[in-house]
């Protein structure tokens, strides 16, 4: 589904050249959920942004469904990008638009109406009751669920998640990860999850790639953690965890 062949990416920082990624080889199969972990500055976000060509590789090739986006004209690149959903650390919702419009936006960009489909996706992330609210009135977890609904509204085959839970507290993290696992179960979406939180990756990914200074330092299958009783409130979980 996604293939990196000897991919390097360098940036100019003033006069210095910074290597973000160094000759990466990586294959991600269809319907896989892969975690990319690493410290900040390890290149994990860059790796993710190469998949939907928000960044162009300096050398090497990134193939998505056998196609090299870098070789396509801008218009086709934009069209391909619409088949790849993306979820951001800061949610990136439009603050002046109500929830329903935010979710319908990707369809509107394609000239489709999208209201019904958007409502359906809001049901899926259990946010339909909030459809007329503006993002400022939602909690972080709720915002991220809306952002996931938006990313899924076009039925993408790939979902890219860039630190989707890093701005959230632990209760909301669980809420969002539950939704992502459900996405994979019900839509067979290939999910690439970038995170520095090891627990988040362990709880949901099949496989993890550890990046260090732009190189793959380790590559491992993930053993899911033993199922834990998850009790409702923050206070209960805090007491449980700390005891």
């Amino acid at each position: 589904m996604i293939e990196f062949r000897q991919v390097s990416k360098t940036f100019m920082q003033g006069r210095a050249t910074v290597t973000a990624l160094d000759r990466i080889d990586l294959t991600i199969a269809e319907n896989e959920m892969v975690g990319i972990v690493g410290e900040s500055g390890s290149g994990k976000s860059t790796l993710l942004r190469l998949i939907n060509h928000l960044e162009a590789p300096t050398s090497g090739t990134v193939l998505v469904a056998g196609e090299d986006l870098d070789a396509l004209p801008a218009r086709t690149q934009r069209a391909r990008r619409r088949d790849i959903g993306m979820v951001f650390q800061q949610f990136n919702l439009l603050a002046n638009s109500p929830v329903l419009e935010n979710v319908a936006l990707p369809l509107r960009l394609q000239g489709r109406r999208g209201r019904d489909r958007a409502l359906q996706m809001l049901e899926f992330v259990r946010m339909a009751d909030h459809r007329d609210k503006h993002p400022a009135r939602l909690s972080g977890g709720e915002k991220q669920r809306v952002a996931i609904a938006r990313a899924l509204v076009t039925r993408p085959r790939i979902l890219l998640c860039d630190e989707p839970t890093s701005a959230l507290d632990s209760g909301h993290t669980e809420e969002v990860m539950d939704v992502l696992r459900k996405v994979r179960r019900e839509f067979s979406t290939t999910i690439v999850l970038v995170s520095h939180e090891l627990e988040t990756v362990k709880s949901s990914c099949d496989r993890a790639v550890v990046l260090e200074e732009g190189r793959i330092a380790a590559h491992t299958d993930v053993t899911p953690p033993p199922p834990r009783e998850r009790s409702g409130s923050y206070a209960q979980r805090a007491a449980e965890f700390l005891a």
């Binding site: 939907n52 928000l54 690149q77 934009r78 069209a79 391909r80 990008r81 619409r82 790849i84 993306m86 951001f88 800061q90 990136n92 439009l94 603050a95 002046n96 638009s97 936006l105 990707p106 509107r108 960009l109």
Partner: peptide, 24 residues
């Protein structure tokens, strides 16, 4: 991030301006 979102959704330059920038 608003520009980043528009790009990730494959918005055309005109859509970036009218649907994202002017709206926000």
């Amino acid at each position: 991030q608003t520009v980043e979102l528009a790009r990730s959704l494959g918005a055309s330059p005109l859509q970036l301006v009218t649907r994202f920038l002017y709206s926000e």
